[in-house]
Design a protein around this nucleic acid. Structure first.
Lengths: 187, 187
DNA sequence: ATAAAAAAGAACAAAATGTTTGTTATCGAA
DNA sequence: TTCGATAACAAACATTTTGTTCTTTTTTAT
């Protein structure tokens, strides 16, 4: 991709992120975004159709590689299959989040975090779904597999939100222990 | 409250709900709302400061009494304390939702459901928090009580969303059984 | 019946949206 | 280095949306 495009794209993303940490998504205008990013109006619309479109693009940018990194993790060892090894997918994800290469955590703690959270969960859900199909787990209790997958991805995302709101006092490894405690009994 | 105020308030809420089932929150304009509700522009702004304000008001309107009804439920018997009696709070909540006095479920299945979901979870969280404090539960495993409360409310809300997206094939009682299966092991 | 309160309607400035046009700067490849 | 392609820019634009202000009409509670 053209260097110029990369530059403006990054500038818009950065501006948007900054604004999101200041005010709610619905109150942010395209005008503010282009002012903050210091790009022309035409340029913005050449890259994104609408503000919603920009939001989706940012979600994709932020979560796609963290998820694919986690996917690699599940391919070598399963979700939690290797006993209590620190290489569980969930621990991996949490560590990845804490490193905060971009400002994912800032976005997940902003006023409009629900939007990003939802995207995150949907991605995670697919990941776990695949894992469950691979291992051909049986639900001995008559609980639908689908339900369990949703329960795990949902719980994880809600945990992350709890973690962030509580100012991330726990280390990823400790959080992983909590998660294990509430999830393993049902696997 | 004045009958006229009630009428316009209801009309605006209804219009807003209708629009939410058609398009995303961010694409809805005040203009559309007042057109659909058939109220004057001045009238709208006399009731609500902004579109966001309207959203909050609708959330409050919809969830507050369903939550307080659930709160009554926890005061007579606990969360799940009476063994497998159908009077568990969660079953109560699900039944309440299914009856769908207003159109809560329609809103929870709309494109912008995250917003309502978040409000729902926060309310639920308080409810469970109180219950946990009352019963003075001990966390024998070193898992913070706070974490468990969040896990329960989070899981519940994610379950509801799963239920709705799957077109509500299960009866509340069956869903309650699922939820029991994933939550009771950790209580 | 009457005073108070609420809704409607019209009209308004200010701001935001999305598009068009022509110009300038930058890129990547020859 | 040159050159064609492409991206960014600036300015201007019609259109829509926003939020407010006024007056007039209707409805309410007592």
């Amino acid at each position: 991709m053209d260097r110029r495009q990369q530059k403006t794209r990054a500038a818009v993303f950065r501006a948007f992120s900054t604004l999101l940490s200041e005010k709610s998504y619905s109150k942010i205008t395209v005008q503010e975004i282009i002012d903050t990013a210091n790009v022309g109006r035409t340029t913005f619309y050449a890259h994104f159709e609408t503000k919603d479109d920009l939001l989706k693009a940012l979600c994709k940018e932020l979560f796609d590689h963290i998820i694919s990194s986690a996917a690699d993790c599940t391919h070598t060892h399963g979700l939690y299959s290797d006993g209590n090894a620190p290489e569980s997918v969930f621990c991996h994800l949490l560590q990845h989040l804490q490193e905060d290469e971009n400002n994912i955590l800032e976005l997940l703690s902003c006023e409009s975090s629900e939007i990003f959270l939802r995207y995150f969960k949907d991605s995670l859900n697919e990941l776990i779904q695949d894992q469950f199909v691979d291992q051909n787990r049986k639900t001995n209790t008559g609980i639908p597999r689908d339900f369990l997958v949703n329960h795990i991805s949902g719980s994880f995302v809600e945990m992350v939100l709890w973690w962030i709101k509580g100012r991330r006092k726990q280390a990823p490894e400790e959080l992983d222990r909590y998660f294990r405690a509430v999830i393993e009994p049902i696997l």
